[in-house]
Design a protein around this nucleic acid. Structure first.
Lengths: 341, 341
DNA sequence: GTTAGCACTCAACGGCATCGAGTGCTAACA
DNA sequence: TGTTAGCACTCGATGCCGTTGAGTGCTAAC
């Protein structure tokens, strides 16, 4: 049996309808739709075929049909034209993003807000992985007799700072000097390379060991922490609007998964690099999310460094819109982040 | 009619029971409890009195009684001894807090986690208000030819940084000098005073106007932003465990309120300063939270600067435990934050 | 190949009886 | 006078139908 034009049109109509209503769609409802010049009976025959082909499921005998995962797959692979956003919509996104967003963290947070606001699903945004970046500048700023702020700037224009404890009695000018030295020594190195370099520095330098140990410690911590640390989730509550989560139990489980960022993180990471990735239902490996789909896109910073942003929603999500929004926002983020910093 | 000892004991028992089970408690259930040496009939009489006195409500004729707001008020005012935490519990809190928490923001975030983890309710923590603090140090660190990191340290030991745009062609040493000047000029000033000082500086100084404008702009922004910006909420999902939120509608509304930080913020602020504040049901002014109670405590930084932390839970929350946990964590935070920074 | 007709299925809904925890009242008791 | 046993009553919760209606599959006619 082949998926001819009419079958394809009917399948498409079923998916569209189900995305809108979350209610199994029956032959009669479908035939009443304009443009569908056939009787319910005909549609029933086609539906029966589509079910046999694996594109439709039937919750129970006397209910309508719902699209199967296979149908969604086909749908997103073939059907998507990603209609461009209206001017009002792009303006709305810009109003989210344009408000004082210079810092990485803010860009990420605002982007997540924009995403969840525009799609009404749940948004995820992760920062680029630190350890692929190279150090460009290191600066230690004294903030009290015993503590300082360590500022590290990477080639992607990312700024990370951490409070470190310093030995008492160090002068501000001294720290400035050490900063210069560190910048000189570490420029161009990645995390892994940096660690090695540090043991060299340790060997050659007798002074300031405690200070340098603090610095190394903080740098390593910040760089690895960002593995799961720099993920922002927004609009988790949005999904509670959909009938799929009319049951509190389900809602709670879903929100609990969002809480466990360390489980979510690899999911986003894995999708990194590709422009778009769509995982429908069980295609994502978290069992609690087997009734959700995850759509991700990539944004870029300088030097080919990239991060990921994504949307989690019910499998019957509005893929077309989600892709349009992701597309627009990822580009907007890239612009913000790779512009002159 | 007076609230004699037996009435008081019965009321107490009802509240305790209701806190545990969320089910209206009846005379028979109560009489079966050990230590209650009277028959259900007697208890019924007492209950009837207590209802007349306004301490008990009856959802409907043939249900048990539930404590009224007035009862909770009495309960928390008189009954609370705040039993100290067990060693396991304090250890668990410490494991939340001790992990690399030097930075203000982290302390706040971790404290919120600890709070929600230990109580299983929803935790709120707000940072101290910036504008009560005084500037101790200002430092501008170049991070690229056109941008710099502005670091401001306050007398409470709080560190704020923001990326600012700087005119091209400025040298690192130059920025260092300007930082020194700014530190000198601004030390000891609050936000309001600072603004004035700046116009003075502007008058006397012809150079670097664009840079200084950026600095002022960023400082003002950061200081006012922190009004609602520095609030962390954790464990919003926790409340979905309680039968009060078995309805998704209610759950969603609750979570939506948490989203609107700007509404929550004044609530926490208002309670600032007092060691403990307990607002039961409608005593907090947010209608959506009229079935919740808010318990807050205060933590201190250096120089009498203080922030607030609090718990939101159902009115039938375990006040005793909540107070114990708040007490412990607020003290732990104070220790962390007012220690040598 | 399409459509009308028809018997069949099954979740959803509403009515109805039952159950049981709880109450208030009264009368007996210490 | 306070306490308790007994009893009729209330009312939400639960479970059991019967009905309804959207939907299906099959068959026969167009």
């Amino acid at each position: 049996m082949k998926l001819d034009d009419r079958k394809w049109m009917i399948l498409q109509a079923i998916i569209d309808d189900y995305i809108m209503t979350a209610v199994p769609v029956g032959s009669r409802t479908l035939s009443r739709k304009q443009g569908m010049g056939v009787s319910p009976a005909t549609i029933r025959n086609e539906m029966s075929d589509l079910e046999e082909l694996g594109y439709l499921d039937q919750p129970h005998t006397s209910a309508g049909r719902i699209p199967s995962m296979k149908a969604y797959r086909l749908y997103v692979d073939q059907l998507l034209k990603g209609s461009p956003l209206s001017q009002q919509e792009t303006a709305r996104i810009q109003s989210h993003l344009n408000h004082r967003t210079a810092q990485m963290e803010q860009v990420i947070r605002k982007a997540a807000q924009a995403l969840s606001d525009m799609t009404q699903y749940t948004a995820l945004v992760v920062a680029p992985q630190m350890h692929t970046m190279r150090i460009v500048r290191v600066q230690i700023v004294q903030v009290s007799p015993v503590s300082a702020l360590l500022v590290v700037v990477t080639d992607a224009g990312m700024i990370k700072d951490s409070v470190i404890r310093i030995p008492e009695g160090l002068e501000s000018d001294h720290l400035y000097g050490i900063s210069q030295m560190l910048t000189e020594q570490l420029t161009g190195l990645t995390l892994a390379e940096m660690r090695q370099k540090f043991s060299e520095i340790f060997k050659n330098l007798k002074e300031h060991r405690r200070l340098l140990a603090s610095v190394l410690d903080a740098m390593e911590y910040r760089m690895t922490e960002s593995e799961t640390g720099e993920m922002v989730i927004d609009g988790g509550v949005n999904l509670l609007h959909y009938p799929e989560y009319a049951d509190v139990e389900k809602a709670r489980n879903f929100l609990a998964v969002l809480q466990a960022k360390d489980k979510l993180y690899p999911l986003l990471r894995r999708a990194g690099g590709v422009e778009f990735s769509i995982r429908i239902g069980p295609e994502n490996d978290i069992p609690e999310l087997s009734e959700c789909s995850l759509v991700t896109a990539t944004y870029k910073m300088q030097n080919d460094v990239h991060g990921t942003l994504g949307i989690i929603g019910p499998t019957r999500m509005n893929y077309g819109r989600v892709i349009s929004v992701l597309d627009y926002i990822s580009k907007a983020m890239s612009d913000l982040l790779s512009g002159e910093n």
